[in-house]
Amino acid sequence: MAFLVLLGPLVTGAIQKLKARLQSRTGASVLQPYRDLTKLLRKGTVEADTASGLFRMIPVLVLAATVAATALVPVVRAGSPTFPLGDALLLLGLLALARFLMAVGALDAGGAFGGMGASREMTIAPLVEPVLMMVVFSAALAAGTTELGTLAAHRGSSWLFAWDAADFLGFAAMIVLLPAETGRIPVDNPDTHLELTMLHEGMLLEHSGPGLACMVLASHTRQIVTLGLVSSLFFPVGLAVGAGATALLFGVTAFVVKVALLATYLALVESSYAKLRLFRVPQYLGVGFVCALTALALRIL
């Protein structure tokens, strides 16, 4: 859990660095997100004078909900957990809770930007969530459970060779969804607050200082949770069933490699595509929906 939270900013830093290199810039260090966070934590806070007491609690709640989701991602161990905590649906539920609270907080300061960001985020989210669930369903139907560890164990170590058509389609849907769920181009642009392009960033606009640090950390964490979800659903390689130092080390290394690969994909997509118009996004997500539905149909029929 702590591992994922600490690793989260590094993934963002790596994506930013790779993007910069692809654009022939030197770019900031991969550690830049950590520096930003510590700086924000030292700063003072400016609050909107119209905001209610809830506004101050929002970063805390958002961060807690997102970090709780990390506890449900199998990083090194497959198989059913010793004590049942939650499954894929609960993980998605916790992410949705974080998003809900963030959108609520955005409306509190009473500026048009926050509302706009919240409105767009809550337009895209209900379209992404069912497709994401369908991808989870298509994996779950094969294993008969929605528990991520058990799902990973069911898929086994011969992962890519055991893929059938439904898995390929499910993965294709996931590829489409990944930028949407992590808030990246072509669905969202994480680098700007410009009202034409922003979704997620607009909701952070009124937060400052340590509160903003919580929100930003939550975004990093959310990203790595999503990547972890994909890798445990489709590439459970390295997830050990047994315990032991070597298994643990191998698992961690494998996890880092998987996340690095997915992060490279995100950086590549972000460097090579333009952001879509907001009302084109449903069509884009429609591709994912069709893939996921076909995957489900193949699994059942």
């Binding site: 400016v46 609050e47 909107a48 004078d49 119209t50 805390v60 009473g110 500026g111």
Partner: peptide
């Protein structure tokens, strides 16, 4: 974490419009 590392002040200001 939300309380921050330093003891920087908290102040209120109108929302930027």
């Amino acid at each position: 974490l939300r309380r921050g590392l330093g003891h920087a002040p908290r102040r209120c200001a109108p929302t930027w419009t």
